[in-house]
């Protein structure tokens, strides 16, 4: 795990280094902070990985079944590299799904599990863990070192990409914000927070997309992309997007392709 980080860091340093002449003191400060918290030996996200492993093989639901036969795209029960190839189209559901949608599908179909409690605990809080966050931490970790390569061959995958791209530029709500307002150009900040340019394929987007889910130090929780997008819609002054909804998957498809080739380092640790 540490060696992966050592590969990722020089790439990121290269990216920042190229912008060095224009870099202001405050940006250097942000970078120092990032380096400080990016210590894998101190990542509580691995507690979520362990919990997720147990939930994966826990019998429950009306069918008293585990999730172990769940097909994440690489065949029933195959976890290695599955997360690196999602979101993807699933013929049985006739739908493009991200990992959380797929897990919900398996919970329903394989386990006969009532999702009410799962959805209520979709975002963990102090003293209340989230099965979904734990499962995503466990399964994404099985893609450690894989290259992000979500497929884009099926017409529905291509449609989701196009929807995601349109949503990325879609301005709405009282502040007229779109994702592109904050993530549309290189080297921008909101207050002191550096904003990645997510509009097109780049090392920057690889750095972002290879490092979710992440243990968020500011929230003391392991968060998934579903939560990140929920939080960005909050900043956009939009209503909360529905958990596991189509639009969040569409945005994830768009982002996954702009981050294609990223080396998965998950769960990572972030501010």
């Amino acid at each position: 795990m540490r060696h992966l980080l050592l590969i990722a860091m020089p790439l990121f340093a290269l990216l920042l280094g190229a912008a060095a002449p224009a870099m202001e003191d405050s940006e250097k400060e942000i970078e120092r902070y990032r380096a400080m918290i990016d210590d894998p030996m101190a990542n509580p996200g691995y507690l979520a990985v362990d919990r997720g492993e147990q939930i994966w093989s826990l019998s429950r639901g009306t069918k008293s079944a585990t999730l172990e036969a769940c097909d994440l795209g690489q065949g029933p029960g195959v976890l290695d590299g599955a997360y690196a190839r999602m979101p993807r189209y699933f013929a049985d559901a006739d739908q493009v799904m991200d990992l959380e949608q797929r897990l919900a599908y398996c919970m329903r179909s394989l386990q006969g599990l009532d999702l009410k409690d799962i959805v209520a605990r979709r975002f963990g809080s102090p003293g209340k863990t989230s099965d979904m966050e734990d499962l995503v931490a466990f399964i994404s970790n099985k893609s450690q070192g894989h290259k992000l390569a979500a497929p884009l061959a099926h017409p529905k995958e291509r449609e989701m990409y196009a929807i995601g791209e349109a949503m990325f530029y879609r301005r709405s709500a009282i502040n007229d914000f779109a994702c592109a307002t904050c993530h549309g150009e290189d080297g921008r900040r909101i207050r002191l927070q550096a904003l990645p340019n997510l509009t097109r394929p780049s090392l920057q987007v690889q750095q972002v997309m290879g490092t979710w889910p992440a243990y968020r130090v500011s929230q003391s929780q392991t968060r998934t992309m579903q939560h990140r997008l929920w939080d960005c819609y909050r900043q956009m002054r939009m209503p909360p997007p529905d958990y596991l909804s189509e639009g969040l998957t569409a945005l994830s498809v768009f982002l996954a392709h702009n981050g294609e080739g990223a080396t998965i380092n998950a769960p990572s640790i972030k501010r």
Binding site: P155, R158, E159, Y161, A162, I163, E165, A166, M167, R170, M238, P239, P241, D242, S245, E246, G247, L248, A250
Partner: peptide, 16 residues
Amino acid sequence: TASPARVDAAIAATFA
């Protein structure tokens, strides 16, 4: 691959 109407439908589903 994604008409404005299709995008609107996705938005409606996302904020249902």
